[in-house]
Structures are given as structure tokens and as C-alpha cells.
Design a protein around this nucleic acid. Structure first.
Lengths: 231, 231, 231, 231
DNA sequence: AATGAATGAGCCTTCATTCAT
DNA sequence: GATGAATGAAGGCTCATTCAT
């Protein structure tokens, strides 16, 4: 029996485990954890029914590993630096949004990690905390930092947070609102071009809003600003 | 046996059905349709295990009725006119957003319909089409109409649709991104005041963006605009 | 509640009970006692689901009554005298067989009592004893009497019994072997003409056999016979 | 999971399947398909409740296999050639009848296949067609061939068919009329001797009848016969 | 190391029956 | 007297899990 004590962090130790993880990702993302059947996963992976329990202890153990696997895949995007130096804030924002969209809908990527997260949103498992900490919090902080810079408020300011929510909300609606979008806008397709179009739109939309907030904030607190400048 | 041919549209016919529907709403929203157990629903409703089959035919029949029940509760919000006369577009937008937020998080309202929809987003059942048509499409159309008026584009224009997506995305992130929000911003609470705050924020944020788009559009097509004015 | 102590002997006490009995006859004959559903019976009879228990105590009580009802219907045939005076034995036999066949497949008769008996043959209920005593034993005795007369043996002689079995077997194969006949001889139909044809055939077939036995018996025991004649 | 695609034709693949089939044969034959409980079968076979689904897919799959199992057991009798060379027709007939009776009531044989068929007669399942085709049609054809030879009519002649019915009816009355016989003739026992006695009786009875028909047919068509003789 | 056979728990559903009205 | 509502018992089936090999 494989050493279950040695943590894998979503990294398969051999080809069999890799096949199982890949298959499990698809199946779990289709129906969620509870409704997914170990049988289907094994059939899809072409392994024996007992292989899941043998390699991962039980169904939940496999699921956690799949979640980490997805998190690792997402790690690259989390490392993507949204605040590239030497570019305008709007360009940075566009690059960030595009990176996220490509991460979710890029042609080379499996679509299942996004669907998996949609299920976690509906019914978080204990592992969800880790995913949020590893993947989502860095993104959120990066957006808040960018916003704070534009609107001239601290990163943990209430307005900053609401703006970050607004920006991220515009992005995730394409992920978690996918099934609604399919029905309300049937012609819509996720192509590389549309991803760029959406990213540009969200960046323009958001940057315009942020600039407006920035002007309003400047007008509302002229003295502090002037004081700050003087210092 | 109750007449199953007579449509109920989510309206319970007696106290027992009301108790079952209420209990089912909670249970379904916790785990989704497949993973939900009829046993739990009956236990929560304080009725016999066979009552579900007696009153609703089977588990799926009950689920459809719960969905309609939730849809009926949402009906008021769908009827909410987002384009009230004699107000500024920004005020209309704010009222619309606030109405939606209050519908989802109002103090008197059960929280389960939102959770139920989150599950449908993750794994739509056949009934989801009806929900989209009855509830979501009208909302989407209303937002597009408002957007179109502000940015001077047709309601089915691509830019109009993207703006509508941006606005609705900002709202639903508070619904379906709830579990993430809880973790990234633990202090946040849904109170009547915060609902108003969010609504104001989204309205300001979005209106500023829309106005920016309107200016840009006007600049891009000066001739048509002048022609239109002349007429 | 109707007086359940007063025996009915399969005679309905009012129109409702008659409708239930008729419906129950059909349903029970289709699927047998166990697999028959009270729901189906009530639906067919157009009465409330609780009516069966109200009128007949329970499902088994209804079944017993149905059996008696069928037995009463069969009673006329049982009273049919197979040994009419003043006719040849072959004619008597033919009349008996035809009577039985018409009783089972006559145009005016419901077909379900026969099917019901087929089920009893497969899995007798306690009531089956009564049916055998009331319906089948008299028939069997009548046939044995006729046979005994032809072959010159006592009614409880072994050869007499075997001959009676042979005759009755030829008849009941059209009842209980019905489903096989349908498949092996699809063109076959139960019409008044074919009933007569079958009756003639069985009578000829059997009488020829009986006469042969009679001759053989006479040859084997010439002395007793002569003695008998002398007496 | 065992390969369900590979047809078994009623042959168990291991000891467990054999135990289940044996137990199922008994239980199904007692109550018929519908009323039989998988629980009872498993209890009798000493296996887990899920074993039926594991090995046979579901209850119906098991039943079909039981039917094939019974059909295979009956296969020997079906292969029994009723027209052995070098014997008189009456001897052939006697051998055929005895073979059938021994097949049904032989000391070494389980009694349940006969009871199972009685249930199929009462309420055929879809599998019954196959049983008729594989088991009963060959028997019927064999009998018709023998009859045709004796009475001088074609095998598909109406009189031939009726005679075959008469012969088979005499046999099956001992199978499906078993419960009636038990009550009307309690002393009767199925011993090897009585089987021979019955076989002799049926053969004598039927052959005498057939010869009578042969004479009558010959008298009715003297010209064809004479013509035939002349050729 | 890996698997085919087997299992136990539990789920949805059905159905005869009851009970208050 | 008769019924609509409700129930308890059980049945077939699924599924994650285990175990001997």
C-alpha cells in the first residue's frame, strides 16, 4: 500500500494515480462530491474499483487530493503578478483579468477545476478553506492593492473592498454563472478572442469606475490630500 | 391521493404540504437535489417517510415544486420595475440592485432559495430552464434596457450585454460567492444597512462606468448623434 | 360498517360490492393474489382506496370472496348433469366436455375465473380446498362414473381414475395451457365453432380409447363378466 | 463485477452463482416472479443481499438465468428422440411420455422447475417466449410427427394438432394439475412405478384413440389411399 | 502491488392498512 | 356510511468499502 503519511499535495506519484486524479476531476466537477460515483471514476480511469481506496484511502481522500491538484494547476495563475511595473493601472487590470479568464477558459486547460469550484461554492467541504487561502486570497489582495492605488484609499478600506468585489464579481460571473449565460445568450462562445474582449471590457468598465471614485474621494478630502502632498 | 394533475405552481394546498415544502427547501439547499435525503426532509417536516410520495409523487416532483415555490417568492422581485419614471438612471439602478439584494438577504426571508440556486448553477436540473426563463431573463432584460438607455446602444448590442453582465456579476458575487466572502472578509455581515451600502456602491460604480462608455460612444460616432439631434 | 359476520358466499350485498368483486376478479386473475394491487382494483371499480378494507376487511378477505364469487358462477356448470339419460355414452361425454369448454370460454362469460384458477394451481391459497370440493370433485366424480360405465370397472378403480385424468387433462390443457397454445398455434381462436370442434374431438378421442379399454378388460376377465351377465 | 455480456445460458460460473441459482429456483417456484423476495433468495443461498445485483444485475436478470437453468435441465428431454427406430408407434409414445414424466418427477430431480412453469402459465414473463421456443415447440412437433404418422394426416393438419393437444394434455395434467390431484386422489404418489404406470396408460389410451382415427380417416378417403397403394 | 468477489448500510419507492372526519 | 389523508413496513436496488488472494 502506498505510504499515505507522505503528503502528496495533489502531485500524483505514478501514472495510475495521475489517471485516477484526472478522471476524478472530471467526474467530481460534473456532479459534486456526494453524487459522484467511485465506479464512474474508476471506469473512466480504466482502473479497478478498489484502486481508489487502495491509493487514496477513501472517496473523501481522493476528493481532497483532487482539490489540491486543481489548486496546484491554479497556482501558476496565482503567481501571476497582477501589478506589473511600468504599465498603466488599466493595463495591469486588463492583464490580470485576461490571465484569470484564460486560466479558467484557456483552450489548453481542462474546464473541470472551475466547475469543481462552483460545487464548492454551493457546498463547501473542509478543504475549501485551504483553497481559499492558497488561491483566492492572494488574488483578492492583489486586486485590492491595485484598487487602493487608483482610488487613493487603504487596502483594507471598506470602499476598496467593495471595489475589489465589484471587479472580481464581473469575472466570476463568467465562471459560476456559466449555465445561466448559456441560456440567456446562446450564441456566446468562449474563444481566445472573446476572452480578450471580455477582459478589455471589464478593465475599461472597472477602471472608469475607479477613476470616478478617485475623483470623488479627492474632492471629498481635499485637505488630507493636500496635507499628504505637502509632506 | 391529491390530484396531481392540478398544477400548484409551488403553492402548498394545505399545512402539511407547506411544512414539507419548507423542510425540503432547507434540505435541498444544503446538499443539492441528488445528495438530499427524503428521510431528512420528512424528519424535519415531522411527517412520515411516505408523505413525500403521497403528496408530490416522488423526490423529483417535490424538488420541482420547491423550485417553483422559490420562484414564486422571487416573483415580486421579478415584477419590480427597474425603470421607475421620474428618477435618474443611477437612482433606478440603485433601487433595482437594492431590491435584488433585499430579496436575497432581507431579514424576513429564508436564506435557502439563494443556496438552492447556487446548487442549480453547479449542476442544473431540467427544471432550471424554467427558472431562468421566468426569473432571470426578465431581470437580465430589464438591466439591458437600462444600460442601453445610458450608453446609447441597442439592447442586444454586444457592449450592452457585457455591461449587463458586469452589473449582474457585481450583484451575484454576494449571492454565489457568499462562502468565499465569509472567509476573506469575516467581519462582513448582511444587515439592512450593508445591503444599502452595497447597493449604493454597485450603482455608483456601474453608473460611472456606463457614463464613461456613453461618452466614448458619443465621441466615436459624432455624426449619427448629430443627425439624431437634428431630427 | 357492513356486518362481516354474515357470510356472503360470494354474493355482493350492494352495487358497490358487486363492482369491487368484478374489478377484483379481473385484477386478481391477471397477476395473482400477491402481485395484485388494491389500488388497481379500486381504480377499476371506481371506488375509494379504503373501500376494500371497509367492505371486505382486507385484501385476503376480498380475494376469498372473489373465489367464492367465481365458484358460484361455476356452480351452474357443476350442476350440469354429465350423464343425461337416454343418450349414448359418447354423446354424454361430448355434452359434458362442451359444457365445460363453454363455461370456460363462452362468449357471454368473463374469462377471468379460469385465469384465477390457473393462479391457484400455481400457488394454492387456503380457499382452494373449498373450490376443489365444490367445483372440481363433482366434475371428477361425474367423469369417473361415466368412464366406469364404459370400461366396466368400479368408479374408484385405478384404471377408471387414470382414464378420468386423461379426459380431464385433454380439457384443461385448453384452459391452463392457454399461453402455450397461443404461441404454438397462433391462428387458433376460441369461437363457438371451435369449442364444438374441440368437444367433438375430445369425445371421439376418449370414447375410442375407452372402448378399447373396455374390450381389453372384457377379454382379460371373461369369467367375471359372464358371471355378471348371468346374475 | 462479473462480465455480464458473456452469456451464461443458465450455467453458473462459480459455486456462489450456483447456490444463488438453486435458491432462486426454489423461491421463484413457490411464489412466482413478482411476489418472490430477493431477500428470501439470498437468505436461502447464504449470501449477502447485494449478491444478486452483483452477479445477475437485478431480480429480473436472475429470473431469466433461472429460467435458462431450468431449460437446460430440460434440454435432455427435449433432445430425447420420440421416434426411435425399430419400435412400434405405441412403444415410442410410451417412451416419450415416460421420459417427460421422469424428467418432471424423477427421484433425482428438483421439483421446482415444474412449479416455475406453472407460474409462467398463470402469468407469462417476457422470457416465456424463449422457453416455449426452446423447450415446448420441439416436443409439440415431435408429438405431431408421431401422430401424423399414425393417423395418416399432415403434421399441420387440424386433426393432427388436436390429437397432439390431447396427448400433451394428458401429460401436463400431472404437472400443472398437481395440486388438484393431491386433493382429489390423496393416496396418489409419484414413484418410479406410478410414473411407468401412467406412461403406459397414456400411451395405450392415446394409441387406441389414434388407431381409431386412422381407421376412420382411411374409410373417409378410400380412393386416395387405394391410389397411394397402387403407386 | 493490485484486484475480483463480496458485503452492509442506506436510499427511494410501493403498498396495504388505518384513522379522523 | 364512506372517504381523503397519512402511515409503517418492507422491497429492490445502489454504492462505498473491505478482504482474501
Amino acid at each position: 500500500m502506498p505510504d499515505r503519511n507522505r503528503s502528496r499535495n495533489g502531485v500524483p506519484r505514478d501514472a495510475t494515480e495521475a489517471r485516477i486524479l484526472e478522471a476524478a476531476g472530471h467526474v467530481f466537477s460534473e456532479t459534486g462530491f456526494q453524487a459522484a460515483k467511485v465506479r464512474d471514476i474508476c471506469a473512466r480511469a480504466g482502473v479497478n474499483l478498489a484502486a481508489v481506496n487502495y491509493h487514496f484511502g477513501d472517496k473523501l481522500g481522493l476528493y481532497n487530493e483532487v482539490l489540491r491538484y486543481a489548486a496546484c494547476a491554479a497556482g501558476d495563475a496565482a503567481n501571476f503578478n497582477p501589478v506589473l511595473p511600468g504599465r498603466t493601472p488599466e493595463a495591469k487590470l486588463r492583464a490580470f483579468v485576461l490571465g484569470l479568464l484564460q486560466h479558467m477558459y484557456g483552450e489548453e486547460r481542462p474546464a473541470w477545476p472551475v466547475r469543481l469550484m462552483t460545487h464548492e461554492l454551493a457546498q463547501p467541504t473542509p478543504s475549501f478553506d485551504g483553497v481559499v487561502d492558497q488561491i483566492m486570497r492572494p488574488r483578492h489582495n492583489a486586486v485590492r492593492a491595485l484598487v487602493a492605488g487608483v482610488i487613493g484609499r487603504p487596502v483594507d478600506d471598506r470602499q476598496t473592498r467593495l471595489c475589489a468585489q465589484s471587479i472580481l464579481g464581473q469575472i466570476i460571473v463568467y465562471a459560476h454563472g456559466r449555465e445561466v449565460l448559456k441560456r440567456l445568450w446562446p450564441d456566446f462562445q468562449f474563444t481566445p478572442e472573446t476572452l480578450e474582449e471580455i477582459a478589455s471590457h471589464i478593465a475599461s468598465f472597472s477602471y472608469a469606475a475607479l477613476k470616478s471614485f478617485a475623483r470623488r474621494n479627492a474632492a471629498a478630502k481635499p485637505k488630507q490630500k493636500q496635507t499628504a502632498r505637502q509632506i
